[in-house]
């Protein structure tokens, strides 16, 4: 029951993207297509689960004063592993996500969960919390990526939805499209949660 709560918290109530508004750089940068969004989400989830679990395991060994550099080393190790493995086995995806793979290190979600949750809770709960947060991040990226791909390129996960040569909303694939789509999605999420609150009360 506790584990279930740890898992679903990241999906909605404390969704990193829509509710906490952290770790937004990759959300905007890599979501030109749905598949990019999913891949970035999965890579971040892997780092989140592994680093949360390991940091929770090491929480009694690491002295309080040097905990932040210690966490950063642990996180950077997993990020570099993801970076190298993707470069070797998924080179096309690696070249699209590019810079934003090494930048998972400074994604506030990862360090934030290490500090706020993993440093205080058991290994299993920390891993589940990381998984929940990662999945919450992944669905946000996938949603944004899908909307931008459908409107900007006229396709969904690479499958063309419109005839070749149809004029699509090219602006959606460009930086302004990312900002505006995320802004509108934030407003939609606020409306949904406001309605939820009204129902409860």
């Amino acid at each position: 029951m506790v584990l279930w709560k740890d898992l679903i918290r990241g999906l909605w109530a404390e969704n990193p993207t829509f509710r906490l508004n952290i770790g937004l750089c990759p959300v905007l940068a890599v979501t030109t297509s749905a598949i990019n969004g999913v891949s970035m989400g999965v890579a971040t989830t892997f780092v989140l689960v592994c680093s949360s679990a390991l940091i929770s395991l090491l929480k009694r060994i690491i002295p309080d004063k040097v905990r932040i550099p210690a966490y950063i080393i642990v996180i950077a190790t997993f990020v570099t592993i993801v970076d190298l493995v993707m470069h070797a086995y998924l080179p096309d995806l690696h070249s699209v996500l590019g810079l934003f793979i090494p930048l998972i290190v400074v994604n506030c979600i990862v360090l934030g969960r290490a500090e706020a949750f993993a440093a205080k809770n058991s290994v299993v709960r920390s891993a589940v919390d990381g998984l929940g947060m990662g999945l919450g991040f992944t669905w946000a990226l996938t949603l944004l990526g899908s909307i931008r791909e459908i409107l900007g390129a006229g396709s969904f996960f690479g499958h063309a939805l419109v005839a070749e040569g149809t004029t699509t909303l090219g602006i959606m694939s460009l930086p302004p499209g990312a900002f505006i789509t995320l802004g509108i999605l934030m407003a939609v999420m606020n409306m949904v949660s406001a309605r939820q609150k009204r129902k409860v009360s």
């Binding site: 505006i180 934030m186 939609v188 606020n190």
Partner: peptide, 17 residues
């Protein structure tokens, strides 16, 4: 109301971009 805060900020950033 729903746009207040980060929502409108992102749309502004879009226009700046």
């Amino acid at each position: 109301k729903p746009l207040r805060g980060v929502g409108i900020a992102f749309i502004l950033a879009g226009l700046l971009s």
